[in-house]
């Protein structure tokens, strides 16, 4: 059986909120290392990969592998019934028909309990190769969100160019063009504002802004976001969570002329 207790419901609320517009029905794969999810959007252009390590829960118990097929719309409805600070416990039997969610208020003695019916989801699982990326940019997640939102007003696509000069986000649209240039930046007092660019070779890639704007819904999960790029491979956008847990998005590039 599965029993996983989260100190704050807020974490799961934010994760589900960040991915629910990209993917609808997903398997939450539970085993003794934690709860993982991998799902592609309908167009097979973007992929969500979530890992909530067992250390992110206290306690965490999962005796055998259980796949919980959950509709994220349904999960959102139930998670709305939890307060952000509630303690959340997920429970399921070994061959479950439902997943059980218990929300406990630390301040009052209120306990609420919900069951969500599970679905059989035959999901395509992709093997993501280990990649040594040519450029890794770590930057404030709010800054990345602002860039994507600002440029999406002008264009459908953004080119991300990374060189030893820094990183440049460029777009061209019907009304004109825009570009934002960032350099490495260290703020001793506010390290969450740091921009770090780790480059082994220059990179230039084009991506759909619609998806990037969608990924940025995860900005509330982490002060910083990591963008990993290599020419002609999917972009990795990573929001690191506590205890080595993470929410990652992969986005296939736009290629050729």
């Amino acid at each position: 059986m599965l029993e996983a207790r989260l100190e704050q419901a807020n974490l799961l609320k934010k994760v589900v909120d960040a991915i629910k517009d990209l993917v609808q029905d997903c398997n939450f794969d539970c085993n003794d290392s934690g709860i993982a999810l991998q799902a592609m959007d309908n167009s097979h252009v973007a992929l969500v990969s979530m890992m909530l390590k067992s250390e992110s829960f206290s306690p965490f118990r999962c005796d055998r592998n259980i796949a919980l097929g959950i509709n994220l719309g349904s999960l959102t409805k139930v998670l709305r019934c939890a307060q952000n600070e509630d303690i959340l416990t997920l429970k399921a039997e070994d061959a479950p028909d439902v997943v059980n969610l218990v929300f406990e208020s630390a301040e009052t003695d209120r306990i609420s309990e919900y069951d969500i019916k599970l679905m059989d989801i035959d999901q395509e699982h992709l093997g993501i190769p280990e990649t040594e990326y040519a450029a890794t940019i770590t930057m404030p997640s709010a800054e990345f969100q602002r860039i994507c939102r600002d440029l999406s007003a002008l264009s459908e696509s953004v080119s991300i160019e990374c060189s030893k000069e820094g990183v440049k986000f460029n777009c061209q649209g019907d009304i004109g063009s825009g570009s934002i240039h960032l350099r490495s930046h260290t703020n001793v007092d506010k390290p969450e504002l740091n921009v770090e660019i780790d480059l082994t070779e220059p990179v230039s890639l084009t991506f759909s802004l619609k998806y990037l704007v969608n990924f940025c819904k995860a900005s509330g999960l982490s002060n910083q976001v990591k963008l990993c790029l290599s020419n002609e491979v999917p972009l990795l956008v990573e929001y690191a969570l506590s205890n080595n847990s993470y929410l990652r998005f992969y986005l296939a590039p736009k290629i050729g002329d």
């Binding site: 190769p129 999917p234 296939a252």
Partner: peptide, 14 residues
Amino acid sequence: APKQATLGKFFGNL
């Protein structure tokens, strides 16, 4: 204009 690729081109099926 460049064309949107899909992930299957880069990631293998498991």
